[in-house]
Write a protein that binds this DNA or RNA. Structure first.
Lengths: 175, 175, 175, 175
DNA sequence: CATGAATGAGGTTTCATTCAT
DNA sequence: AATGAATGAAACCTCATTCAT
């Protein structure tokens, strides 16, 4: 059996993504991880600290999945389309729970800089992901914004409709 | 002095928009509204009910402000640009708190259909707002998605940068 | 049966005096008072608040008992002696638990002004009690200090020895 | 670098005197001493044990300082006055934190005999300090009590006023 | 229509101590 | 002799909601 710390992170990964930050209590985490409460606080200074750790793990996981999903082609438009198909895949896997980073952004007080920084950093990386591919800041940000909307609107309407529409739109945008 | 119900709604309007749904407790609401606890539950079956009411009021308010801000021109591109300028105005007024509807979407459990419906309805109206103007579903959804991203990204980065970029992009999109 | 608030105060009165401030938890108080936790916080903003309330009640009680015990004579030396006999009485009744005010003074952080003020106020009243009787500040403070020591030393040694010695001393001090 | 045990004692000496017994956690002690948790319990059976050790070290320290401060004169009244001036010096050095022994007396449960004995022993030594000087039990206990009050009242009122008053009083007491 | 007291369930965090290595 | 992870129990406090009046 894995270490308490690992079990906490594993369970947190599931619960935060599924239920959100505020709806997931320490009690549920330690209970499902089979860990004593004091053990939790041995490894994480606070729930906020756990959140930062979660976001970092999620960041790793999410980009890994994206890379894996998009690899296998060097065709630029194809790679872009695959990024959006990745969203469809994630919606299927996670039942339209949207973006953990944006969800937590909505849950934290405006002055929580520690968490905000991690979220900003994640999205900055995503912006760069598109910029690296397209080498055109206006175009890449354009697509980044369609990508972000695609996540949110599919979460809102529990549907991939606008993701599909985005795919069509960007097909026409790319030279 | 206005009725207890009105005072509750008025205060809720401020607090939910400013602090979010979960961070605003019933106690704070009734205390700032100067209303007894039981009086609150006389007018609202639950906090969820109040949330629905809040979203309806917010819906009214938000579209009124948008209409007011966009009126005064019949030029199509100009009206579109003004919609985005309205976001800048709101960010200034509400300190980059983002969209109350999307924020609450992130805060509620996935199975809360009652609230979800109100949020979906609001965003459907917004989609129609652009569709009515543009009469082209692909184009209007395209702009709708840029609009949604503009809200979220400005909330995330506490900056109007991507709103301004969107304005430039749509200028080139409109025939 | 009395109100929850009264039961809380009654139980607190016993527990704080018997066990001290830090050794008495909210859980024990509400459990012995037969009151829900939220009911406690309905009436007291915090444990610190309860402490202030306790000290005020204790202040009332203690001076009432002192007055009662010392009444029945107008002879000055006799009244003074009775004040010290009152300490013996209290030690018997409360098993040498000493002074609640001084005990709590030792338990709070140095910067807790709210509680400190109440304690200072109590002791200032006691100093004035002797000053009013003796009309001589040096003499009254002299006796006040013997009185304070009498409390503490009897608590420390679980004995009335130094109270008795103080009685002999002040008999020689009074003209 | 000194041994873990010594570092623990050194840090404890500072923290217990500054923050009190209950407000100082084992975690803070080992963290500031740079010692592992288990190493602590290797040297001390319990926090209570550490407390006993602390009181013994404090006892040594306190009397040493008192002797040092009072030496340099063989004049009896002068030596007595210096004892009270020593209190003023300690208040200055330790910011009116009072007597560690009496503070801990207030913090421990009434039935903690182990710690109680050490405190009683310290104060018995202090009583003997005055008795050895004065050879008159009534007078020495009289002054001992003024001394004890002086400590406590200066802690309570964050002022040396009653110490100064005690000095005047005892000047008149000594033949 | 209005009230304020009362609640059960849960929140996050910290305590002194022990165990396996 | 030394360690750091793990713990059960308890700390103080807040949540949305209901009840008796």
């Amino acid at each position: 059996m894995s270490s308490p710390r690992d079990r906490i992170i594993e369970i947190t990964f599931d619960l935060f993504a599924k239920q959100g930050y505020n709806s997931t209590g320490i009690n549920q985490i330690i209970s499902e991880a089979g860990v004593a409460k004091a053990s939790f606080y041995l490894h994480f200074k606070s729930k906020e600290d756990l959140c930062v750790e979660f976001l970092k793990v999620r960041h790793q996981y999410w980009f890994n999945e994206l890379y894996t999903f998009s690899s296998g082609t060097n065709d630029l438009p194809e790679r872009l389309i695959r990024a959006f198909d990745f969203l469809i895949e994630m919606n299927k896997k996670e039942n339209f729970r949207g973006c953990s980073f944006l969800n937590i952004l909505s849950e934290i007080p405006v002055d929580n800089v520690k968490i905000l920084n991690v979220i900003q950093s994640h999205k900055a990386d995503l912006r760069n992901y598109f910029l690296d591919m397209l080498k055109d800041e206006v175009l890449s940000d354009h697509i980044y914004m369609l990508f972000e909307s695609s996540i949110i609107e599919s979460q809102l309407f529990r549907s991939n409709e606008l993701i599909e529409k985005s795919k069509k739109i960007i097909t026409n945008l790319i030279p």
